[in-house]
């Protein structure tokens, strides 16, 4: 290897991490022996990772671990209860499965709070998503909750709603609630006319 064969930094990182094997690793070692510049870079990377290894996770007090499982159970219970209350409130008669993008736009547009959802990104994602139906219901639920409970939008803290992440949105509904919501959504959409009308940009902007 000549100086022209100097390795790029990324490859040296892989090398330092032990991810380069066989003949290539031997070639790099050989090059490093002869090339002070690359040798210096490898040493610098090693020092960096040695320093990084000093990073510590603060250990919580023992009581935290003792009560960890109980704390989780408690949160599960109280979440389940508050969710039941909220779901009842938002199950207004009517709304649609086929046009959740429409629904999101609609609900956010008339919601009392700043939308926390990048609506267009969500819509684009939903339109191309393989898990469209499940996702759109989940996104719709989120949007409904924001619209209805703006002041409690912290409920949404745990959701990822942005480009590329929609498939990750999780539902808090069980299967039965999910079906019920889909039905309600469908009815409302029918009563509100075609998707095109409601999805119009004017509605949102």
């Amino acid at each position: 290897m000549s100086a022209r064969d100097c390795l790029d930094e990324d490859r040296l990182i892989d090398f330092v991490m032990g991810e380069v094997t066989g003949g290539e690793a031997a070639g790099i070692e050989e090059h490093i022996r002869r090339c002070p510049a690359c040798r210096g870079r490898v040493e610098s990377l090693r020092r960096t990772l040695d320093l990084a290894a000093m990073d510590r996770v603060p250990e919580p007090v023992p009581a935290y671990w003792e009560h960890f499982a109980a704390g989780v159970r408690h949160r599960i219970r109280s979440r389940a209860e508050s969710r039941k209350r909220r779901i009842r409130l938002i199950l207004i008669p009517g709304l649609a499965t086929a046009a959740a993008s429409v629904l999101i736009v609609l609900m956010l547009a008339r919601g009392p709070v700043e939308p926390v959802v990048d609506v267009e990104a969500v819509v684009a994602e939903i339109n191309t998503s393989a898990v469209a139906e499940e996702v759109l219901v989940e996104a719709a639920v989120d949007a409904l909750l924001v619209a209805q409970f703006g002041e409690e939008a912290d409920l949404l803290d745990n959701y990822l709603i942005e480009t590329g992440d929609v498939a990750e949105i999780v539902t808090e509904l069980d299967d039965e609630e999910e079906r019920e919501l889909i039905n309600k959504l469908a009815t409302i959409m029918e009563s509100r006319g075609s998707a095109e009308t409601i999805a119009g940009k004017e509605c949102w902007s």
Binding site: A37, R47, T48, L49, A52
Partner: peptide
């Protein structure tokens, strides 16, 4: 790779040796 490079710079290992 980005993380390591950035750590290297922040931890004062950024200079060419």
């Amino acid at each position: 790779h980005h993380a390591v490079r950035r750590l290297k710079e922040m931890l004062g290992e950024g200079g060419s040796t």
